[in-house]
Design a protein around this nucleic acid. Structure first.
Length: 585
RNA sequence: AGUGCCGUAGUUCAAAGGCUAGAGCGCCCCACUGUCCAUGGGGAGGGUAUGGGUUCGAGUCCCAUCGGUACUGCCA
């Protein structure tokens, strides 16, 4: 037996017991006549003591040669500490070691294994197994486990069945790029890894399983971000015989359960907002509603005043920054530079200080008077002491720009409190989205999403305005889930493919299996999928999903620890019927 | 694919174009009668990602390449 107790277990009651412990050497404090060693495992830290008088000479000798991260096993007596440490759970006791076994030595780790490590991101990823020994990373992984257990327990209790769907499937042209896997047994042919188990879960509904879920890896070969990984995990769900209302209620229930179970937060009915309203009020389809700074559209109070920038703008829109009047001129200039960066792309920013004494001072004083600014303040909800920031131009661009500014300012002003949770349903998404590049409409969600009842005809006349039975669950400005009521009628599905530019032949080749299935009594059905990595990060009050993934990939999709991807041997290539070709550039 | 920022001891960072490229942490040695980020003293360790250029002189300026990172495009 390697150990009788863990390192987080022993308390004052255990004094005078003989115990055996095992773990990693966290810290050695060698005072010559006395050596203390902090012994660490997943459960905590227990202090070991070796001293000249009470410890066997040989043991003392070995102890003086220990190093950080050595794996050791000790046997000794639990004694009460002479000077206690109230900052640790085991701080009242220590182990007077009588036997010490070195189970495995360690090289000096390249960074400190402490809560606040000196290691950079890079290095930590390269030695991720050492990083995982650190408490914050370990706690995050355990936190993720708690969330997935809560999800499984809740959905299982609601009669959902977890079913595994295949990872080796077929590539589809729409949507994200697929990761592909060559088939050795079928020369020249490839599997694709699923971007989501979408069609399979629909087929499970045709199969009569009624309520399905799966905590499942999905794969997308697109460029990465701080919050985006090439392989990520979804809580994928589908239900039969449901309307949108049923889905919203069921998964509002799940989310409420998680907030209660994991964060101890009680949230009443989740508010709902249409896509159009979200765009108008927040410039964004995933608004963070923990704070205000709602958009105020100013077109009607800014036109015909000789200020051409506003006169020519499709949209003039502003927000009131709480307490923003205290910004210095320099700070405001920096804000203007910030919105003019290529990533944001605003042409400029008009601002108006709303002083505590009720007067206004603006960058466009030449064109507008106090009465005009009072209108601006009224529309944007500005109070004395605030700063009104106004952008103008093309509606969709300006909304995106002002939304980015709103989020940036909220972050700077500390309004995005990680322990505050504001869920929101965004509903009535457009069915289609115009794509400039290909000059045609694409499915905004996916091609299996059903249009709102009675809107099918609109497809002919005004396709951009067709609303879908599609919804997103937003939490603190992040899309944590999205779904739709699906099409379950073959004719409607065929029509959809037609509108999306699939020829009947293409549609049959790509999704024939699904449309065939629809002919054999497909029930009405719909579902939702949650991004688990992001959900866990938000519930954990953190920004980066990498901190909640045991072995994440870097910005270029590399695993720097195992050094993947990598070239493979010619024999492997041959076996897979892959020819090595050199591209011309 | 694009733009910004970054690349200097094991590590985190310093070093107005100018002395032998420094410091904290870590590491090694010594001391120390209750430590717990132990303390005090001593020591080792890099020639600045790579390649080219400008200059009397280059971590520092310029160009290219590579790598990291954040964002934009992209992510049905």
């Amino acid at each position: 037996m390697y150990r009788t107790h863990t390192n987080g277990q022993l308390r004052i009651e255990a004094v005078s017991n003989t115990v055996t412990l095992a773990g990693w050497v966290q810290k050695i404090r060698d005072k010559g006549f006395m050596i203390w060693v902090d012994l660490r495992d997943r459960y905590g830290i227990t202090q070991l003591i070796f001293d000249e008088e009470r410890t066997p000479k040989a043991v003392m000798e070995t102890a003086s040669k220990l190093g950080r991260e050595f794996v050791i096993q000790v046997t000794g007596k639990v004694i009460e500490r002479e000077s206690k440490n109230p900052n640790m759970p085991t701080g009242d006791i220590e182990i007077l070691v009588s036997e010490l076994t070195l189970l495995n030595p360690s090289l000096t780790p390249p960074f400190t294994i402490e809560e606040e490590t000196d290691g950079g991101e890079d290095l930590r990823m390269k030695f991720r197994y050492l990083d995982i020994r650190r408490k914050p990373v370990r706690e995050n992984l355990i936190f993720r486990h708690k969330v997935t257990m809560a999800v499984r327990n809740y959905l299982s209790a609601q009669n959902f069945v977890e079913v595994e769907t295949p990872y080796l499937i077929k590539s589809t042209p729409e949507g994200a790029r697929d990761f592909v896997v060559p088939s050795r047994m079928n020369p020249g042919q490839f599997y694709a890894l699923p971007q989501s188990p979408q069609t399979f879960k629909q087929l499970l509904m045709v199969g009569g399983l009624d309520k399905y879920f799966q905590i499942v890896k999905c794969f997308r070969d697109e460029d990465l971000r701080a919050d985006r990984q090439p392989e990520f995990t979804q809580i994928d769900c589908e239900m039969a015989f449901v309307e949108q209302e049923d889905i919203l209620n069921t998964f509002e229930g799940l989310t409420r359960h998680l907030l209660k179970e994991i964060n101890g937060v009680t949230v009443e009915k989740f508010p709902r907002m249409t896509f159009d309203e979200a765009m108008k009020r927040f410039g964004n389809d995933k608004p963070d509603i923990r704070f205000g700074m709602e958009f105020g559209e100013l077109n009607h109070v800014t036109q015909h005043k000789d200020f051409n920038v506003f006169n020519q703008a499709e949209l003039v829109v502003g927000i009131a920054v709480p307490g923003g009047n205290s910004f210095t001129r320099k700070e405001i200039d920096q804000l203007i530079d910030w919105v003019k960066r290529p990533q944001i792309g605003a042409m400029g920013m008009v601002y108006c200080r709303f002083a505590e004494d009720g007067t206004f001072k603006s960058s466009v004083d030449k064109f507008y008077d106090e009465a005009d600014f009072a209108e601006w303040a009224k529309i944007t909800g500005a109070q004395p002491g605030d700063l009104i920031c106004v952008l103008s131009g093309n509606t969709s661009k300006v909304r995106a720009q002002l939304s980015a500014l709103r989020m940036e300012l909220a972050t700077r002003l500390g309004l995005r409190k990680p322990n505050e949770f504001a869920p929101l349903w965004v509903v009535d998404f457009p069915l289609l989205e115009w794509d400039e590049e290909t000059q045609r409409y694409h499915a905004m969600h996916h091609p299996f999403t059903s249009p709102k009842p009675g809107q099918l005809k609109l497809l002919e006349t005004d396709p951009g305005n067709v609303k879908a039975n599609a919804y997103d669950l937003v939490l603190n400005g992040n899309e944590i889930g999205g779904g739709s009521i699906r099409i379950h009628d073959k004719k409607v599905q065929a029509k959809m493919f037609d509108y999306l530019g699939f020829s009947p032949e293409e549609a049959k080749a790509q999704f024939g299996f699904l449309m065939d299935a629809f002919q054999y009594g497909a029930p009405p059905h719909g579902g939702i999928a949650f991004g688990l990595d992001r959900l866990v990060a938000i519930l954990g009050g953190q920004e980066t999903i990498r901190d909640f993934i045991a072995f994440p990939k870097n910005n270029s999709g590399r695993d720097v620890m195992i050094d993947a991807p990598a070239a493979i041997h010619q024999e492997q290539l041959d076996e897979l019927n892959l020819k090595t070709t050199h591209s011309e550039n």
